[in-house]
Amino acid sequence: MSSAAITAAALAAAAGKGSITDIDWMLTLLTLVLFAVFAFVMTKLGWKPLLSMIEERERTIRDSVEGAHKANAEAQALLVQHKETMREAAQQREDLLKQAFADADQARAHLTAQAKAEAEKQLQKAREQIQREKQLAIQEIRGEIADLAMGAAARIVESSLTPEAQRKLVDDFIEGLPDKH
């Protein structure tokens, strides 16, 4: 009932002075102009500054991300380089150690050989010296003995002693020999 009344009245009103579908051309024109002005003003005072701020931030973020990627790549490269350097250093150290050991071995062998040779030489020298001294002593002793024997013989002959006396003489002689030292 009520809705019928409303519909009827709405139709009556629509047919009358004001209807919702009436176009007020003045209003349309005003809308066109005002909205154009609004859009223009908003573009200048609102959207452009806002969008430029947003874009600026987006650019900063993009740059930061790119920078981070780049830094990461650089760090990776550095790490690889660093690892390579470390490996090389280790290798070098090993080589050096090897070389040092080898050198030391060589030096030791050399020194030992040298020392041995020196000792041998000294020993040889000493032996030769001893030999020489021995020969000399023997010769000396021989001369001495010959002289003594000669003296003794002379005395034996002089005294013509009995064999016992001779014996005793020889013994005395020998007894009378000076000690070796």
Partner: peptide, 12 residues
């Protein structure tokens, strides 16, 4: 909610 206004907007 006014047809004249939406006409203006639609025209733009």
């Amino acid at each position: 909610g006014n047809l004249s206004v939406t006409l203006g907007l639609a025209a733009i």
